[in-house]
Amino acid sequence: MLRDITIGKYYNGSSLIHSLDCRTKLAGALLYIVSLFFVKDPILFIPCLVYLLILYRLASIPWHYILKGLRSIVVLLVFTFVFQSLITSGRELFSIGFLSVSYEGLMKAIRLVSRISLMILMASLLAYTTTPTQMAAGLEKSLGFLEKLKVPVHEMAMMVSIAFRFIPVFIEEVNIIMDAQASRGVDFYSGNVFRRMGKMMPLVVPLFVSAIRRSAELAMAMEARGYTDAGNRTRYRELIYTKKDRTAYLISILMFLLILISGLLL
């Protein structure tokens, strides 16, 4: 249902992982995800999973949040698994009618499903422990070198962080407008798909109008406070690497090499 949208799933906490510089977390997540592509033998996914679970523990995120991340892609996982095991030819394990499952297919399916799940879990961990604002700041700084190529990194990062900032505002607004239109007799929850899409008009138009109004107001407020895109801006919260970050980098790189080498050997 529309009301259940929860984007920006930051899990408020003050764990070790939360306190790391977001660039460290970004790099760590990226290295992990890349390394997963070198894993051939499904057995190797077990240490990968253990590593991930340790990270979740360190971030003090409740266990059911792990499943929450996977729930949204359960259909995708099931489809991948079924199709991969069916369409790959090889040594037949068993067959149902004209469908046969091969040993190679099963292995491939397990590999793909584990890879996708672990990737999603790592990305969710990043989202759970990093606020969108931090993420935007981290990306801005990491991609800062692109400024030399005349890519407006700062402006893009600014837009991204403003966009994130307004998600809760718009969710709130959607709820109010839905209530208001429901009070005028719209029933958002009945009828077939097409009828329900038609009922979105009373919701979408006011939302767009309000988005435009809000952005004009925000632009004015920013200018009133002297915002320009010229010059080097300093930050209120500087991104500084600490000893924790260096350790985290070391662990991430070690883990990356470990998975890479064992993946290539096995």
Binding site: I176, I177, D179, A180, Q181, A182, S183, R184, G185, D187, M201, P202, V205, P206, V209, S210
Partner: peptide
């Protein structure tokens, strides 16, 4: 739906709902 017709609710800033 009959209740919603009989009890009219005007929200805060109702002009934001015009479409």
């Amino acid at each position: 739906s009959r209740l919603r017709q009989k009890v009219g609710l005007v929200f805060q800033y109702p002009e934001h709902q015009l479409f």
